[in-house]
């Protein structure tokens, strides 16, 4: 059974279609990256998954339960919104106690859980009221409250988007620390963060699914390879000839460094040395690497207005 099954989900706000016939399956135990630009429909999808918004059409099942039928699945999930807002008069411990009690957790178990989670997110020494917390501290507290009920699935909506590099690292470290025990649905537009923690991703654009799969699979499927060559010089003749070969789909010149997008790796491996020899260019360094998620994303997601 999948942790989350979304079947032809559509959500409209008046004439605007925020999510259009989205179908997704999130296997249990994965850290699932849900990628898209701002306004792509990620938050709307999450709000539907959590019963905060009603679907216009389609079926959504979380942990086998249809969200239209009952809300009991909420007992087994956790949620961190993009901007977690707390009661400023509470301390971190008081908020976690309140959140835990809403799940019906007993006192002894809850006390242990609160201390574990505060330790996990690095707030165990914090005694002040939440009103005085930094943005990063609130995000980490948000993460802790999302885990208070020891959920089977945790939904994280842009957990790092508004944080500075230190805050981002702290949140990602926390996610890495618990990701083996829970299914994580990680919505984000920060591709480096997704690449760092996720094993499987879906990319959506304008409310529609563009692709879904393991990151390694997507790299093979969409990426080809990127070949980087440092040469003695970059004559115009070489650039022109590279533009004419069919395996080279992208050329970027940075000083004496050429970065090539190679759609067919074997043909590039054979053809490139020949081209360099023809144009009498010396090689200082040459390496090839798989494309990162950002390159795949840019390739698949249409720019605005297209």
């Amino acid at each position: 059974m999948a942790a989350v099954e979304i079947d032809r989900l559509t959500k409209k706000f008046g004439p605007v279609t925020a999510v259009n016939e989205l179908t997704l399956h999130v296997p249990k135990g994965t850290v699932f990256g849900f990628l898209g630009r701002n306004g792509a429909g990620k938050t709307t999808t999450l709000r539907v998954l959590l019963g905060l918004a009603k679907p216009t059409a389609g079926d959504v099942r979380v942990l086998g339960r249809s969200i239209r039928e009952d809300r009991s699945y909420l007992q087994r999930v956790g949620f961190l919104p993009d901007v977690p807002v707390f009661y400023n008069w509470m301390t971190a411990r008081e908020y976690l106690r309140f959140a835990g009690e809403l799940f019906g957790l007993g006192s002894a178990k809850l006390n242990r859980r609160i201390e574990e989670l505060l330790e996990l997110v690095g707030l165990h020494k914090e005694k002040n009221r939440i009103g005085g917390f930094s943005r990063g501290m609130k995000q980490r507290l948000g993460l802790a409250q999302a885990l208070i009920n020891d959920p089977e699935v945790v939904f994280l909506d842009e957990p790092t988007s508004a944080l500075d590099p230190i805050g981002r690292k702290e949140v990602l470290d926390s996610i890495n620390a618990f990701k083996d025990r829970v299914t994580v649905f990680f919505s984000s537009h920060i591709l480096a963060d997704v690449q760092r923690v996720c094993s499987r991703v879906a990319i959506i654009d304008r409310g529609e699914l563009i692709t879904e799969g393991d990151i390694a699979e997507l790299r093979r499927k969409y990426g080809g390879r990127t070949v980087e060559i440092e040469v003695t010089e970059v004559p115009d003749d070489l650039v022109r000839k590279l533009g004419e070969v069919h395996w080279c789909e992208r050329i970027e010149v940075r000083g004496n460094v050429l970065e090539l997008g190679a759609s067919e790796v074997e043909k590039a491996a054979r053809g490139l040395p020949e081209l360099l020899a023809e144009t009498r260019v010396g090689i200082i360094r040459m390496e090839s690497r798989e494309p990162d998620l950002e390159e795949i994303f840019v390739k698949l997601v249409k720019p605005d207005g297209s």
């Binding site: 019963g51 809300r71 959140a99």
Partner: peptide, 13 residues
């Protein structure tokens, strides 16, 4: 309006 409702109502409340 503030968003505290989102935090509470995403729980079994």
């Amino acid at each position: 309006h503030r968003g505290t409702a989102t935090m509470i109502l995403s729980k079994p409340v």
